[in-house]
Every structure is written in C-alpha cells, then in structure tokens.
Simulated scan of single mutants.
Amino acid sequence: MVQSVDLKHLAALDKQLKALHLRCQEWDRKITLTENKSFKFEVHLFKQSSLTLTGYSEQLSNTLTHLRYVISNNMGETIINYECEQFVNQFSALLNIVNQLDAGKAEGLYKRYSTQQEKVYQQLQRQYQYEKRLLTMIDEENTLYETATFAHKEIHRSRVNVLKERYQKCNEFTQSLEFKMDALDND
C-alpha cells in the first residue's frame, strides 16, 4: 500500500517537474549567461553549475530518478529522507529563480565566482558525494545486520558505528567548508 502511495506522489512530482522544465526552456531562449557568471543557488544544491536553467532542471530530474530508485528498492528511511530533502530543496530553488524571472526581478539572480570560491565549491561537491556514499554504506550495513546470524551481528554493528563516526567527521568538515563559502560570498 505504501509503495502505491509513493508511486502516486512520485507521478505528481514528475508532472510538476515537467511543467517547470518547460518554463526553464522558455527562459533559456530569452537569457544568456557567460562562463564567469552563473545563477545564484546555495552551493550544495546541485552537483554541477550550469549556464542554463534547463541544465539545472535536468539535474533535478536525475534527483527524482534516484529518489524513485531508493524508494522502489526500500533502501532505508535515512537515504530516502536524504533524497527527498535534496529533491525538495532543488525544486524550490529552481522554482524560485523562474518565478523571479517571471516577475521581472532578474537582478540579484546571478553570481560571479572567484577562483577561490570555485575551488571551495568543487571541494564541497566532493564532500556531499562522500557523505551520500557513507549514508548508503550505513544503510547497507544496517540491512546486513538485520539479516545476519547472531554470530555476525556484532561485526555489522561495529561497522555501522565506525561508518557513523566517519560520517560525523565528514559532516563537520563539510560544515566548515560551507562556512568558508559563506565567508567568501560575503566578501
């Protein structure tokens, strides 16, 4: 029952995403950006910067595809929540940009990045991917723990604890990079 409800919600999200994608394509025909100027998003939202709104829309579509995958494979609440949050944040940010363009408020939508900002941005993207891999590994170890024999449960429990510690350290470093990026943005 839960699976069918999830599929209905995903179909609704897919429909909204297609409508947003069409709006992005319309705006891409009207505006142009240069390589040193890009749309202003929080740095952790998208894996790659793009010179088109459609490029961001396609990344959002990939996020929805991955969300559909983790739900259909019952990959665990932690990774499903992570993917849901990622989709919602990306969708909201992209919709905000398009709505501001529709309202004629294009000023402030673009941002120039210095070389140092770009380096921190790239480092942040690697950190986000590493965190995501760690969450997947934690989920896999928890699944193995549930199906393991009594003799092997302790091994999987210790692996989960080690992965959680590694994730905590990784997350602390990610936060420090986010603060560094914010400081660079405010300069």
Rank of each mutant, 00 (worst) to 15 (best):
E178I: 13
D28P: 03
L60K: 04
L163Y: 14
K164T: 12
T54R: 08
V98A: 01
L124R: 07
H66R: 14
Q3F: 05
L64I: 04
N89W: 02
T174P: 02
E85Q: 15
Q122N: 13
L20W: 00
R23S: 10
Q117W: 09
D139Q: 15
L45Y: 06
N186F: 08
F179A: 13
R133T: 15
K15C: 08
Q86E: 08
Y130R: 11
A151W: 09
Q125P: 04
N186W: 02
S176W: 04
E85P: 04
K15Y: 07
R133E: 15
E178S: 06
W27E: 11
F173W: 12
K169C: 08
L45T: 01
R68D: 00
I80M: 03
S57K: 08
Q25W: 01
T65L: 08
Q129E: 13
S49N: 12
E107T: 04
E118H: 07
K105M: 06
Q127W: 06
S49P: 08
G55T: 05
L109Q: 00
L184F: 07
E118W: 14
E154W: 10
S176C: 06
H156K: 10
Q129P: 08
T65Q: 15
K37T: 13
D28C: 07
Y167L: 15
T34V: 12
L177A: 02
L67D: 00
F41I: 03
D14R: 15
A11M: 03
H9A: 13
T149M: 10
R68N: 12
T143G: 03
D187T: 10
L60M: 10
